[in-house]
Amino acid sequence: MTVDSFLAKAAPLRANPLLALMSPDYTTLKAEADAATRQLKADGVARRTAGKPPIACIPEGQSVGIMDMLAGLDALSPTDKKLPLKDGYARVIAKKYPC
């Protein structure tokens, strides 16, 4: 799923958060966000193992909440919004937690 498609599916849920948990799109979006997070963690391990610098330097005990994630994705350029969710999310966390 691209950033654009993720945001498009999230828009109605953000507009009516009380009904969001009952929407079938909620499950889809949660799974996509969880998958992107897992992939980024695996990429981070692979980068450390290969001796490459990390994409972001998230302080111990910190995380990016869903609202921060959505705000960061919203702020991406139109070109970046065409990226897969994982890559767009990587740009969000790199901006929020630069090394």
Rank of each mutant, 00 (worst) to 15 (best):
E60G: 08
E60W: 14
E60H: 14
E60M: 15
G61Q: 12
G61H: 05
G61R: 11
Q62L: 06
Q62A: 14
Q62W: 09
Q62K: 12
S63I: 01
S63K: 15
S63N: 09
S63Q: 15
V64F: 08
V64D: 05
V64M: 10
V64G: 05
V64Q: 08
G65H: 14
G65E: 13
G65F: 11
G65T: 14
I66Q: 08
I66H: 12
I66T: 13
I66C: 07
I66R: 09
I66E: 09
M67V: 15
D68C: 04
D68P: 11
D68H: 10
D68W: 10
D68V: 04
M69E: 13
M69Y: 06
M69T: 12
M69I: 10
L70E: 10
L70M: 13
L70V: 12
A71V: 10
A71R: 13
A71D: 14
A71K: 13
G72E: 08
G72S: 13
G72A: 15
G72R: 14
L73V: 08
L73N: 03
L73H: 06
L73A: 10
L73W: 06
L73F: 11
D74Y: 08
A75H: 13
A75F: 01
A75K: 12
A75Q: 04
A75W: 06
L76W: 02
L76T: 13
L76N: 05
L76R: 03
L76I: 12
L76E: 01
S77L: 06
S77R: 02
S77V: 12
S77D: 08
S77Q: 10
P78F: 01
P78A: 02
P78M: 09
T79N: 10
T79D: 07
T79G: 07
T79M: 12
T79A: 15
T79K: 03
D80N: 06
D80T: 02
D80L: 00
K81F: 02
K81V: 05
K81P: 05
K82R: 09
K82H: 02
K82P: 01
K82V: 00
K82N: 06
L83A: 07
L83F: 04
L83H: 00
L83Q: 09
P84Q: 02
P84G: 05
P84N: 04
P84I: 02
L85V: 09
L85H: 05
L85S: 04
L85E: 06
L85N: 10
L85I: 12
L85T: 02
K86V: 12
K86L: 07
K86P: 00
D87L: 01
D87N: 11
D87V: 04
D87T: 04
D87E: 13
G88S: 03
G88H: 04
G88V: 05
G88P: 04
G88E: 01
Y89I: 02
Y89R: 11
Y89G: 05
A90T: 00
A90S: 08
R91E: 08
R91I: 03
R91V: 00
R91W: 00
R91H: 09
V92T: 07
V92C: 09
V92A: 09
V92K: 10
V92R: 03
V92L: 12
